[in-house]
Computed example of a mutant assay.
Amino acid sequence: MGKVSLEGIEFHAYHGAFPEEEILGNRFTLDLELTTDFFKAMSEDLLQETVDYGKLYALIKARMDVRVKLLERLGYLIIKDILSAYPQTESVTLTLKKHHPALGGLVKFSAVTVKYPEDFQKDS
């Protein structure tokens, strides 16, 4: 098993529970690490035998364009998309940060970390 990571992916998106977040949007940063078997990619130098970073970024970007209220929901949906595209994935850890959330004071970011399979045990 090996690990594939994308770190510091940034988006401007419109996620949040408050009406102004739907209008103004916010900056989000995402860190992602997944575990998969990429032995064949290592030994044979074949992109199709590993996780394609470009495809991974594109599916995350597509999901970021679909508004949801909660970071927890967004993290869950991104991981579901990854598992659909790469069913050989053994585990995923995703941390999603919302910069300067509307909390009435100075907060650098709010964040959630969602993990597969741990957080998906009740998923049916």
Rank of each mutant, 00 (worst) to 15 (best):
M1C: 09
M1G: 14
G2W: 08
G2E: 10
S5E: 12
L6N: 03
L6Q: 09
E7F: 13
E7W: 05
E7G: 12
G8K: 05
G8M: 08
G8V: 06
I9F: 08
I9Y: 01
I9W: 01
H12V: 13
H12L: 14
A13D: 06
Y14R: 10
Y14S: 06
G16P: 07
G16Q: 04
A17D: 01
P19D: 13
E20A: 11
E20S: 11
E21P: 01
E21Q: 06
I23K: 13
G25A: 07
N26S: 13
F28I: 05
L32E: 06
E33R: 09
L34K: 07
D37G: 08
D37H: 11
D37I: 11
F38V: 09
A41I: 07
A41C: 10
M42F: 14
E44Q: 14
D45E: 10
L46R: 15
L46E: 15
L46K: 15
L47C: 03
L47I: 14
Q48T: 12
E49L: 09
E49V: 05
E49G: 06
T50A: 12
T50W: 10
V51Y: 01
D52M: 00
Y53K: 05
Y53T: 01
Y53D: 03
G54Y: 05
L56H: 05
Y57K: 11
Y57V: 10
A58L: 10
L59W: 04
I60P: 00
I60G: 00
I60Y: 00
A62Q: 13
A62H: 08
R63S: 14
R63W: 02
M64K: 02
V66P: 04
R67L: 07
V68Q: 13
L70V: 02
L70Y: 03
L71K: 00
E72W: 03
R73H: 14
R73V: 11
G75Q: 07
G75E: 01
Y76T: 06
Y76C: 00
L77R: 08
L77M: 11
I78A: 00
I79C: 03
K80P: 00
K80I: 06
D81W: 05
D81K: 10
D81T: 05
I82D: 09
I82T: 09
L83F: 08
L83T: 09
L83I: 07
L83R: 08
A85Q: 08
Y86R: 06
Q88R: 11
Q88Y: 01
S91M: 03
V92H: 04
V92P: 03
T93A: 14
K97A: 01
K97P: 00
K98V: 00
H99R: 14
H99I: 12
H99K: 15
H100T: 11
H100D: 11
A102N: 10
L103V: 15
G104P: 03
G104Q: 09
V107K: 07
V107L: 15
V107A: 07
K108V: 13
F109S: 14
A111S: 15
V112R: 02
T113F: 02
T113S: 10
V114P: 02
E118H: 12
E118F: 11
E118I: 09
D119S: 06
D119G: 05
Q121I: 10
Q121Y: 06
K122M: 04
D123T: 04
S124T: 12
S124G: 13
